[in-house]
Computed example of a mutant assay.
Amino acid sequence: MKLSVIITTYNSEEWLRKVLIGFSIQTFDDFEIIIADDGSANKTKAVINEFSSVFKYPIQHVWQEDDGFRKSEILNKAILNAKTKYLLFTDGDCIPRNDFVAVHYKYKQKGYFLSGGYFKLPLAISNAITTADIVNQNCFSIFWLNKNGLKLNFKISKLTKSIYFAKFMNWITPTKRSWNGHNSSAYKNDILAVNGFNHEMKYGGMDRELGERMFNNGMLSKQIRYSAICLHLDHSRGYSTPEVWEKNNAIRNFNKKNKIIKIENGIDKIDS
């Protein structure tokens, strides 16, 4: 297999089902899926079992006990379980367009990580998306989204399927080429070189902190914001607090100022 897709989830089985449907119809199928599960109940396992024979390779379900927000740790466990050299990271609330994996595989390059984004949907439309809408790609249609209540604005241009427009927008967008947990990819060895995700960090900037240490290690990044498209399904974030953000920002500022590459509490602390 050519690539490993790592999908994070936590007790969001309906959203995860829609995401897995999206990955089941990819134009490029030579990949494995690893579900990085931060302590979900049995309903999530049942959803994964529904897709046990859908993909070319068996789904890996990497689970840890629910002990608060420990996304960094479950991601590091998933990385260690990956069977390929190239890893694509996304979340269990992001439906991929059918060329999502193909785009990441096409643009991968030694010495770079790829930085993608998402198109955020309101809750009503998130709920309205059916299996058929994903399979026939209606949910990526500007017309369909507008018909279902989405107000049109410039951001919707992200859903264009024009290769030339996407390349142009990737070039001119002022958005930083940061590591975004919902849509980024890199070689496994480049992630291991910085000791993976930081266990000291909870929700809020932990993904970007990984990318910042990769920059400190001499890596560059490529913008694929308008090429690798996924739809973000709406949900609440009860795990986000001002105190956690303050701590996370302090860690990021320290690491950037001091050019930190390898953190102390990272992937090498995972039990093999």
Rank of each mutant, 00 (worst) to 15 (best):
D133C: 06
T9F: 02
W144C: 10
G266L: 04
N198L: 01
M201Y: 05
D91I: 01
A193V: 03
L152D: 03
L80V: 05
K120A: 15
F154S: 13
T44I: 08
K161Q: 11
S184A: 14
T130W: 14
A128I: 02
A132L: 12
N258F: 15
N49C: 01
D30N: 15
D37P: 02
F154V: 08
Y86L: 00
Q60E: 10
G205L: 03
S162M: 06
K56C: 11
N253Q: 13
I270M: 04
K18R: 15
K71S: 12
I6G: 05
A193W: 05
F69S: 07
A193D: 13
K2W: 04
Y10H: 13
N138T: 03
S24L: 07
G111C: 03
K71V: 06
P242R: 07
G218R: 09
T173C: 09
T84F: 09
K202Y: 04
F100E: 03
T241N: 05
S162P: 02
G218W: 11
N146Q: 11
K158E: 14
K158L: 15
N42A: 06
V19C: 15
V244L: 11
L114E: 07
D99W: 12
S221D: 09
K45D: 12
T131C: 01
Y57A: 00
T241V: 08
I35V: 13
G204K: 07
Q64L: 10
V54M: 10
A78K: 07
E209H: 13
F28H: 08
I35F: 13
W15Y: 12
F113Q: 01
K71Q: 15
S236T: 10
S24Q: 08
S184P: 06
M169Q: 12
S240N: 07
S72H: 01
F119H: 11
H61G: 03
P122R: 11
N81Q: 12
N98G: 00
G204C: 09
S227E: 14
L231F: 08
H104F: 15
F197G: 02
Y105A: 05
Y203L: 08
K71L: 15
